[in-house]
């Protein structure tokens, strides 16, 4: 399994990573351009906050799609990009929260702290950010060695909590009944369901093998 096939030759090429970086930074470049062009509207904080939040959740889901993509296509080379995609999710989440703290709240820390404790959607959002921060900090290879593969993996499974928390945060923030957060929620659900399926299959296989050995 996971033998590199033809598309993988691009995925493993030296040009692939810079191109993916460029693609991941394109939304930020576009945001800056919109600002330069004066298209933020009368409430720039709200515009920037929503824009960066949209991209944070998109990159989180893209990063979470990497493992299922390998499982389904057998392209092992896509795994090269998983960490950087996850880090871009963190990057946009950080911009999202920074825009709230700086541009919306003007660093009114007491009010921000009250918001975190009191407003459920902010509590849930901050939980997701805390998880992404922990994962980003422990993302270098050296940290994997230092923590030990097992502990590292345990910690990084928290990304599943973030994957659930983020669409909930989005849904709670929107007023009325709105489709968009539900679509993100459905995608997150599919990506997690694929993992659950893979995990159940692997367990069943393990049992069958153990049974075969015992017999």
């Amino acid at each position: 399994m996971n033998k590199d096939t033809r598309p993988a030759s691009f995925l493993t090429s030296a040009a692939a990573k810079p191109l993916v970086h460029a693609a991941c930074l394109a939304p930020l470049v576009w945001l800056v351009w919109l600002g330069v062009d004066g298209r933020f509207g009368p409430n720039p904080a709200e515009f920037i906050n929503r824009y960066t939040g949209d991209w944070a959740i998109r990159f989180l889901l893209i990063a979470l799609a990497v493992t299922p993509l390998r499982g389904i296509t057998g392209l092992a080379a896509v795994m090269r990009f998983r960490r950087m995609l996850g880090l871009y999710a963190f990057f946009y989440a950080l911009l999202h929260v920074t825009s709230y703290v700086a541009l919306d709240q003007y660093f009114a820390w007491a009010a921000i702290w009250r918001d975190i404790l009191k407003r459920n959607y902010i509590t849930v959002g901050m939980l997701a950010l805390t998880i992404l921060t922990a994962l980003a900090v422990t993302s270098p290879k050296a940290m994997v060695k230092r923590m030990g593969g097992r502990n590292w993996q345990r910690l990084h499974r928290l990304v599943y909590v973030a994957a659930v928390a983020t669409p909930i945060h989005f849904f709670m923030m929107r007023k009325g009944f709105q489709i968009e957060p539900l679509i993100y929620g459905a995608v997150a659900g599919l990506l997690l369901a694929w993992r659950a399926g893979a995990w159940i299959r692997a367990r069943a296989q393990g049992r069958a093998r153990a049974a075969a050995r015992a017999a």
Binding site: P42, N43, P44, A45, L103, D104, Y106, A108, A111, R114, D115, K118, R119, N120, Y121, M172, M173
Partner: peptide, 25 residues
């Protein structure tokens, strides 16, 4: 009376900007 989503203690005045071009609170 605080709303579950928004503290109602302060407001941003859209159309009245500070020196950074952002609405005053």
């Amino acid at each position: 009376v605080s709303h579950p989503r928004w503290s109602q203690a302060t407001e941003k005045k859209i159309g009245q900007n500070n020196i950074f071009g952002l609405p005053i609170r």
